[in-house]
Design a binder for these strands. Structure first.
Length: 141
RNA sequence: GCUGUAAAAAACACUAUCGCGGCUCCGAAAGGAGAUGAGGAAAGUCCGGACAACACAGAGCACCACACCAUCUAACGGAUGGGCUGCAGUCUGGGAACGGCCUGCAGACAGCAAGUGUCACAGAAAACAGACUUCCGGCCACAAGCCGGUAAAGGUGAAAACGUGCGGUAAGAGCGCACGCGCUGGUAUGGCAACAUAUCUUCGGACAAACCUUGUGGGUUGAAAUGCCAUGUACAUUCUGAGUCCCGCUUGCGGGAGCCGGGCUGCUCGUUCGGUGAGCUUGAAUCGUCAGAAGGGGUAGGCAGAUAGAGCCAUUCAGUGAUGAAUGGCCUAGAUAGAUGAUAGUAUUUCCCUUUUGGGAAAAACAGAAUCCGGCUUAUUUUUUACAGCUAUU
RNA sequence: GCCAAUGUAGCUCAGGGGCAGAGCACUUCCAUGGUAAGGAAGGGGUCAUGGGUUCAAUUCCCAUCAUUGGCU
């Protein structure tokens, strides 16, 4: 099977209410220099198992150039490694919302970002499977 | 060679793989192909417009902005040219006060001769003047003291009531004269004008980035404006009612009464909430707002605004110039949880090592469109040109 | 995106042209067996930054920087 490296609009998290509930009742995973929060989405039918959003805090990077740079690097790394997460979630029926936040204070380089994203996505996949496997009925938070 | 000012140019190119945005083409669809995709400041939001909506007939007051003149411009607080003033430098005129030519830099540059106000400390006195020490006269034998005159000298201060010289006088004083500085009004000449020159005349502290006066301009709100489709408690249409008055000061708020509607209540009283108007007044209007009635009955999406424009490039002409006109060519981001990225290589540039070949490193500084334009301001890398200053060598 | 306000001592704030202040905090001394409270004395300032107006600027004007708030 050929691996799809594309990153289309359906894979991005855009719904305002979903983002709000993600911040109020989402589960967190810290993998320095990232913080990932995730939540199962109810009633969303999609061909993709996750919808992702990327965030960089304005207080740590006041210039828009730096924020755009970091978001593009994270998005590029996610695009090349998302198939690892998709394989881990192949057995899931629900769609998940994920937000990746950058918490370091210094500007990163791509060579350092890529392996960290890969490790973080592998950890996230195992954690989601472990959380939903025992009690599929009351998995809501 | 260095520093400063001004002007101009550039801000990285190509190939491959993977990927993103909108566009065009092919395709029933999935998808595929093609060309294309951040800036000089995209920034600050400091000005000016376009565009849109809304109580814009008109008048007065208030408020805000601007302020030498002319021109440019859609418009401007912007730009260009000119005038005037100040500062610095070279040269120079005069006995002095003070001036002239040239060069460079700077200037929020209408009016204190409309009115009001302020000028600390020091000083005798700080703005219809004024007598501390001097100076002069009188009273007095003289001195001291008292009375009067005087603004020349002293000292204080940021500033002492035009400056120099001569006359004049008891001593003095723009008191008078000549020259000089500033300044009001008139006349003549030159200039579109600001203004300049000559002459007559009035006057002689500063401050309007003090209140203010004069002149000119300004309705308010901003694309999260606004319109359409779908949806439909949120929207628009129709009808009805309210839309009034008083007080206070901190002057744009507060309080009270009345009226309309809702909540509490079976009803009244009462209580509470909302409304009772663009800065104000007058006038016109009854369009905004609030409440009720009628109509429609479950998702917050899509399209337009919104990217061909006061557009860009080249040439010629007009103008000192900003700029304008003509001709020819070009199409050059349009997202909406927000695209423009990653990896590898080549070329180029810079730096380092090396005799060369070659090897290694870096791709930079400021910084990311959000309705669109014209400016201003701020941040910042490199190169070139012109001018000014300094230093060294020939 | 649009619109306002504020920057003064370590902290919270006055002062709005003429020598920069208050409260708390800090230092030293007194007092107490000792500490706190109390009393006395003292130190500490680029008045956010840069220009301008004025004889004189924290104050008036302009620009910049930073912070905070509001509209949605």
């Amino acid at each position: 099977m050929k691996i799809d490296f594309s990153f289309s609009r359906e894979e991005r998290l855009k719904n305002f209410t979903a983002i709000r509930s993600l911040f109020t009742s989402g589960r967190a995973l810290n993998h320095y220099p990232f913080r990932i929060i995730w939540l199962p989405l109810e009633g969303v039918q999609s061909v993709f198992p996750v919808q992702v959003a990327i965030s960089v805090p304005r207080k740590k990077f006041p210039r828009a150039v730096d924020r755009n740079r970091i978001k593009r690097l994270i998005r590029e790394a996610y695009r090349l490694h998302k198939h690892e997460l998709y394989q881990a979630l192949a057995g899931e029926t629900q769609c998940y919302a994920i937000m990746i936040m950058y918490v370091d204070k210094s500007l990163p380089v791509y060579a350092a970002v890529e392996p960290q994203i890969s490790k973080a996505l592998n950890r996230l996949g195992k954690k989601i499977v472990a959380a939903s496997a025992p009690n599929d009925s009351d998995g809501k938070v």
